[in-house]
């Protein structure tokens, strides 16, 4: 390891907290909410890769790849949902979508 392991974990913690703040503060805008989730998933990937470099196994890097594939699937579905919701109400404000069923 080029730097102490706890520094990498601290960086991942900072990034994760920033993503959490983004999700909690921008909870009315669905695009910024998804961006916050991306930030949190990236900090999780950083922890996996750092663990892989710390203990010398390849499993951490492989799971970072799995997270990446999972994220691309999640983002494509979520953005399709955003387009669908925008077509129904022509807004991305989450507070507008509070009814179940057809409008």
């Amino acid at each position: 390891m080029i730097v102490p392991f706890e520094h990498v974990i601290a960086l991942a913690g900072i990034i994760f907290s920033l993503g959490l703040v983004c999700v909690l503060a921008w909870r009315s805008n669905i695009i910024m909410l998804l961006i916050g989730m991306e930030i949190m998933l990236n900090s999780a990937m950083l922890v996996f890769v750092a663990g892989s470099a710390r203990w010398g196994g390849l499993d951490g890097q492989l799971f970072a790849l799995m997270i990446m594939a999972m994220t691309s699937a999640e983002v494509s579905l979520a953005l399709a949902l955003v387009v669908y919701l925008h077509r129904r109400r022509s807004t991305v404000d989450v507070d507008e979508f509070r009814e179940l069923g057809e409008p």
């Binding site: 974990i9 913690g13 994760f16 907290s17 959490l20 703040v21 909690l24 503060a25």
Partner: peptide, 12 residues
């Protein structure tokens, strides 16, 4: 949001 984020950061 900042309060909850700071709590999570302190834990990590």
């Amino acid at each position: 949001a900042l309060l909850l984020g700071a709590t999570v950061l302190a834990t990590i």
